[in-house]
Design a protein around this nucleic acid. Structure first.
Lengths: 135, 135
DNA sequence: ATTCAAATCAGTAATGATTCCTATTTTTAG
DNA sequence: CTAAAAATAGGAATCATTACTGATTTGAAT
């Protein structure tokens, strides 16, 4: 099953590279649809899965029901705001140390690590402070 | 909405505390059903969600489609075998360092971190070595 | 450039995990 | 003991994702 070029897949990958907010499949679909009105949601899912399987993008499980996708495949962490649901990048030096230590302590073979931080993003802290101090 | 005692919830929580393999809601359901044949899957989900919301158990998003649940709420990491799908605990000293560094570097408020390692567990490495060396 | 098998597509149906709904039962404060 | 609040069982509904199918596109060999 050799991979052949497809305009749809290229467009999906290109779109993902323009975004830093790690959109869901449906967000990708809604946006790519502007250029390809006839693209189907199944095509978006199939290509996101194919790209992720080939290591060209990352599939993130942030725990909000839908998977998110990231065109940046370098090792980095993520943050999810439990208030607005936004997903952002987080660069941490000691991520490598974590992997190194895990490989030492563990019997099996460790290939990757997903690190997902949770809390309230700066924007939500700001706006909630200006309105009602509930959070 | 004060929380009232329920035998079903107690049984679910008790069952979870006997297991170290972080079962899914359906596995909890299948097991608790032995004692309560009439318990419904909805009740299992509702109580697992309630316990997780109150911080009495953890809900894990390991990326295999279904959420897993963990009665051990102390800070620790998890490992998921991409071959057999098993989920195990992983204790790492530098997890605290990761949180500390993240809080320093980040503008928002960080409350928690999920760390999920992926790879092949020791059992799967063993058995695949004894059979056909595909992995 | 033409051909043609393999890959991909659009559209839609099916699946699987989880949540929602409602009438009934259980819990617990007074 | 009583009654209001919470929880339940059972099933329907929802949402993300995958699978299916007949038509279209790609690309390597002619």
């Amino acid at each position: 099953m050799a991979v052949k070029y497809s305009r749809q897949r290229q467009t999906i990958h290109n779109f993902l590279m323009t975004r830093k907010d790690h959109p869901t499949a449906d967000v990708v679909y809604q946006n790519v649809r502007q250029e390809y009105p006839h693209i189907s949601l199944g095509t978006v899912y199939r290509n996101l899965t194919l790209l992720a399987d080939r290591g060209e993008i990352l599939r993130l499980h942030v725990g909000d029901g839908a998977d998110h996708f990231d065109a940046d495949t370098s090792r980095h962490s993520h943050f999810v705001c439990s208030h607005c649901g936004c997903v952002t990048d987080l660069a941490l030096d000691c991520l490598e140390d974590l992997l190194t230590q895990a490989k030492q302590d563990f019997d099996g073979r460790i290939e990757a690590v997903d690190t997902c931080f949770h809390g309230i993003c700066a924007d939500c802290l700001d706006t909630s402070a200006k309105r009602t101090p509930i959070l």
